[in-house]
Design a protein around this nucleic acid. Structure first.
Lengths: 229, 229
DNA sequence: CCAAAAGTGTTAAAACTACACCCATGA
DNA sequence: TCATGGGTGTAGTTTTAACACTTTTGG
């Protein structure tokens, strides 16, 4: 044991709640544990923080190692420090949440040794440790954030019809929105650009595609504008 | 060195940004460091997390040891994990912020060995480590929280005139509010109770005192009500 | 009687909500 | 030609913002 300290230290880990949106549901990526404790149970991707990396670096590294995801939206959520949250020893975990769009990223459905899979948040299996609590906190945070920051676009492909954007809000906020009011609101904020492009391969009238204009959003924000749905 | 681990571990600390309100300003409690690094500089109260206590317990313990404050509003803020934030070794800190009212609590202006004092947030001295960044984050969080959660009352005595409540909002949000609109809004939320009591020892017409009715707030909240200023 | 803050209503503008039909497209 | 979702406007209501004077009290 080469590393010795005068006082006992908790172990420090990161865990990441990765959200994605499929046709119907908001989903979370889970990894099947192969080791005790909780062997065979599903858990959040994550792992130990190394002394030479920041917390966010640790989160991104683990994400890459365990799910293949790189370069995605990532934000610190909360730090969980209950004494008995890991039955082996004291482990404090800094939880992050991430948003990805399924189209744009090549998510390894299954990785190295471990088994990774998406689960609908409304139908999660029993999770290891306090990971259910972490997912709950992430979901609550996402719901709050979605309403006053333009983070929802991270869950969509770069080009999307308004319908899909509304669907996102309905799924995450878990309530129906009025189509006309939603469009009016979104378009009036003037942070979307209408593309000269329409949906393809749909069995009905194809919708116009839009793109979130981050530069414009940033400009408007500096001018005192506040995103709100 | 009795505690050995297979891999190097960051040290884990808590730091607390304690806010209070005096007549004019929002203030933060700082402690003068007597040890290197940053000896003589002002810093946030805080210290190492013990393996047998939760993060919040650690924060409350340090707060009591260093400032004498007990039983106050405390909420986790963010975890700071830059690699070089402490020049000695890797230290990750879980930051909390606290709200106190100066009347209700007996704050040791000066403690044991260390020197503790209040500073206006608008006029802080140079701080040790990345503590300025932590204060900034706490202030931003407080500003956000104040608008949609009734946390402001934690900074006031139990009985207060509406004027004082408005003043609090003006100081923290750093902008003037219209007196009539503010009163209308606050009273219309129906979470304050008017007491049969008025201010004493003021050199002008004495204002009615109010008290925040938490029970009523909780009831209203369950009914779908949302606090917002 | 003066200074200081308490207390109080109205109006115009803006934002929000509810609501229904025709259109374009591919099957 | 039918099923599916795309796209659009209005009216009533609520919320917000702006604004000034009279009252009470102690000094």
């Amino acid at each position: 044991m080469p590393f010795s300290y005068e006082f006992a230290r908790p172990a420090l880990t990161v865990d990441i709640v990765v959200f994605a949106l499929d046709e119907a549901d908001l989903q979370v990526m889970l990894i099947e544990r192969d080791l005790e404790p909780f062997a065979g149970r599903w858990a959040l991707p994550g792992g130990f923080v190394r002394v030479e990396e920041t917390l966010e670096e640790a989160a991104r590294r683990e994400l890459q190692e365990e799910t293949g995801l790189v370069n995605i939206y990532l934000e610190q959520l909360y730090t969980f420090g209950e004494v008995e949250r890991d039955p082996r020893e004291r482990v404090v975990t800094v939880a992050y949440y991430a948003l990805v769009n399924l189209q744009g990223h090549n998510v390894r459905a299954s990785t190295d040794a471990r088994n990774a899979a998406w689960f609908a948040v409304s139908d999660l299996p029993d999770l290891a440790f306090d990971h259910e609590q972490i997912v709950d906190a992430a979901l609550e945070r996402l719901r709050g954030k979605l309403r006053y920051q333009p983070v929802g676009f991270e869950l969509l492909p770069r080009k999307f019809p308004l319908r899909q954007l509304q669907h996102l809000y309905e799924v995450v906020l878990d309530r129906e929105l009025d189509k006309r009011n939603f469009r009016k609101k979104m378009l009036s904020m003037d942070i979307l650009v209408e593309l000269n492009e329409i949906e393809k391969d749909v069995a009905h009238r194809a919708a116009k595609l839009y793109r979130f204009d981050k530069a414009k959003y940033d400009r408007r924000t500096r001018g005192g504008f506040n995103f709100e749905v």
